[in-house]
Design a protein around this nucleic acid. Structure first.
Ligand SMILES: [Mn+2]
Ligand SMILES: [Mn+2]
Ligand SMILES: [Zn+2]
Ligand SMILES: [Zn+2]
Lengths: 146, 146
DNA sequence: TAAATATTGACATTTATTCTTCTTTAGTCT
DNA sequence: AGACTAAAGAAGAATAAATGTCAATATTTA
């Protein structure tokens, strides 16, 4: 599930056509650390691909989520934010500037197992999110006090 | 921060008036396991308090969140869902029927401390959420297969 | 090359939340 | 207790903007 060839296979196997646009969006998401919204993707890609439409971004995202190549990270915002990097990791949300950062905290696996054992239904996945001020916003806060 | 008297104090200290409506909404949230949306609160309360308006529910929720007596649990849904039970706990979201359940998983505190140490900014709070099928939905799935 | 599927780009939707106006109430002072 | 005032509530209308839709056109794939 790491290489482009595999991902093309996934699309094909699920009966989806492998289009230029889909590969571009997927590649963008796999190399971005921005956790972009649909519109951010659109804005970034339209420089290089000026005819790509926002509707396609939405359609593509929905399709990529359906085949589990992209996830909605559940940001506490109006618009949905996406991640194409599927290695298990947590997110930090700056409550001042809105920045979203990756954060890897070891030990989630054990909690996940505990939760599975404790819950009467079925648990497929979990998320561990953190909230606070990012480094820059924290520095600003401290300056403001002085 | 456990008793009504304390909570009335919090409201007063922050310069908010203690109104019947605010106490009703707060009490409702502190005794509900539904993690209701604004509209669910409205619908449930209007039987007993027919003149209470939806706008008041929204205003009250905003105010109660401001003074940290209520939180938005960040449900993966269109409408916001609220919790008035502030004892540290996780949530389980059924991806089939939308039910939200409380789940207590010991050991989050350690991860929180690790994350604080690892992050260059300031972390105020974290959330650990689980997703899957609730007991009922899981049973239905199994029946459907047979 | 043909059928199936996807993309465009303009436009529609929709519904959760906010705003507005008027009325009521909580908190304070005498 | 009565009166005053700023804040809050009621009711309904307005909003806003993220996302979905649609018909014509293009692309994929067998
Ligand atoms: Mn990430
Ligand atoms: Mn809860
Ligand atoms: Zn920040
Ligand atoms: Zn369920």
């Amino acid at each position: 599930m790491r290489h482009l060839a595999d991902q093309i296979e996934v699309m094909k196997n699920k009966g989806f056509k492998v289009t230029h646009q889909r590969l571009v969006v997927l590649d963008y998401l796999q190399h971005s650390k921005k956790h972009p919204s649909a519109e951010m993707i659109y804005n970034d890609l339209k420089e290089k691909y000026p005819t790509m439409s926002l509707a396609t971004i939405y359609n593509t995202l929905e399709m990529l989520m359906k085949i589990n190549l992209v996830v909605d990270i559940g940001a506490p915002e109006e618009r949905r934010r996406f991640d194409g990097i599927l290695v298990e990791h947590s997110h930090f949300f700056c409550t001042k500037c809105g920045k979203i950062e990756d954060l890897t905290v070891p030990g989630i696996e054990q909690l996940f197992e505990k939760a599975k054992a404790a819950h009467p239904g079925t648990i497929n996945h979990c998320r561990l999110d953190f909230f606070g001020f990012c480094e820059e916003c924290q520095a600003q806060e401290e300056q403001a006090v002085e």
